[in-house]
């Protein structure tokens, strides 16, 4: 008997959103072009794009907060509009705002009730989450006295409160200090280890690079690329970076066409992989101390910026041609 195929956590099937803008003469504004995307079970998926790219629109569509112009989606194998799906997902909106007359504990209690967490489990679960997001000591304080970072923690807490299988975070690092960002990253990794799927939107690319299994890059409502972070960041193939101690650059290395940078007592050279052995030999001959040899990879940020520039140029030339 063949094993049962693993169902994707999210399947977006051509979701599209067009708003009608203007007061008297309405004109269409496409916020999201038909989007096709699949997020696998148990992965951390980053949804990357500049401000206004369509990240929040996508999340709002998936949460049923706005309605698509066309298309559909399946979440955890069910229609995304099915209320039963919502009991199994958690959502942190961008810059969340909560009922500020409630304390952190009361707010979580309310959300636990709405999520259908059984009464017996509720208290224990709230305590656990308050501890997890570092708000145990201020659980009795009204939210109107909370800082932005503390509200973000409450937001993360309410998203994971009912132990969902799939969590959506919209800009989860926003408003957090470096410690807070680190804690959120740890929390996301913990969620992954627990077998949960995490879908998060961000424009902080270092976070995405450190956390995500796969990412999608979205720009002006259109997905430009979807892929594993490793695939996107290793696109500069065949180049190596060689670092050695000292400030001397042997002539034989210069002759290989190496791009050299001298900093303090180190030299950093970037050259073709095929010359790697020749460089090492040259360093031995000159009795220079080799520090490291590593393949050159583009950072996700470099890839992202290049992709966006390319998209802008293409759009510009099409518009110019028209």
């Amino acid at each position: 008997m063949s094993p049962e195929p693993i169902m994707p956590s999210i399947e977006i099937l051509g979701l599209e959103k067009t708003y009608q803008v203007g007061f008297w003469r309405k004109r269409p504004k496409q916020a999201l072009r038909p989007l096709h995307l699949q997020v696998e079970d148990g992965e951390i998926f980053g949804f990357l794009g500049p401000n206004g790219a369509g990240k929040t629109t996508t999340l709002k569509l998936l949460m049923g907060l706005i309605f698509p112009t066309s298309g559909s989606a399946r979440i955890l194998g069910r229609e995304w509009t099915d209320p039963a799906v919502k009991a199994q997902i958690g959502f942190l909106p961008e810059q969340p705002y909560f009922y500020d007359y409630l304390t952190a504990h009361e707010l979580l209690e309310y959300y636990a009730q709405l999520s259908g967490v059984p009464g017996k489990l509720r208290r224990q679960r709230i305590e656990q989450v308050l501890h997890q997001v570092g708000l145990r000591d201020v659980q009795g304080v009204q939210l109107r006295k909370f800082s932005k970072g503390m509200l973000q923690r409450v937001g993360i807490g309410q998203a994971i409160l009912h132990d969902p299988k799939l969590v959506f975070f919209d800009e989860p690092m926003s408003g957090l200090d470096p410690m807070g960002r680190r804690e959120v990253r740890d929390l996301m990794e913990q969620l992954k280890q627990e077998g949960k799927t995490v879908f998060f939107s961000t424009h902080i690319l270092s976070d995405a690079e450190a956390l995500c299994d796969r990412v999608a890059i979205i720009h002006k409502g259109e997905v430009l690329r979807v892929g594993a972070v490793d695939d996107l960041t290793s696109s500069v193939r065949g180049k190596v970076e060689v670092i050695w101690q000292g400030s001397q650059i042997p002539a034989s290395i210069k002759a290989l066409g190496a791009e050299c940078h001298v900093t303090a007592d180190m030299v950093r050279a970037i050259l073709d992989e095929k010359h790697q052995d020749a460089v090492i030999d040259a360093l031995r001959r000159e009795r220079l101390r080799l520090v490291s040899v590593t393949p050159v990879r583009t950072s996700l940020e470099t890839y992202f910026v290049e992709k966006l520039r390319h998209a802008e140029t293409t759009a510009g030339s099409i518009a110019g041609g028209a």
């Binding site: 949460m63 907060l65 209320p83 959502f91 909106p93 705002y97 959300y111 709405l114």
Partner: peptide, 14 residues
């Protein structure tokens, strides 16, 4: 306006 509704309607609340 305050977007408090987002975290309510993203739960099993019709």
């Amino acid at each position: 306006e305050k977007r408090t509704l987002y975290t309510v309607l993203s739960r099993p609340v019709r």
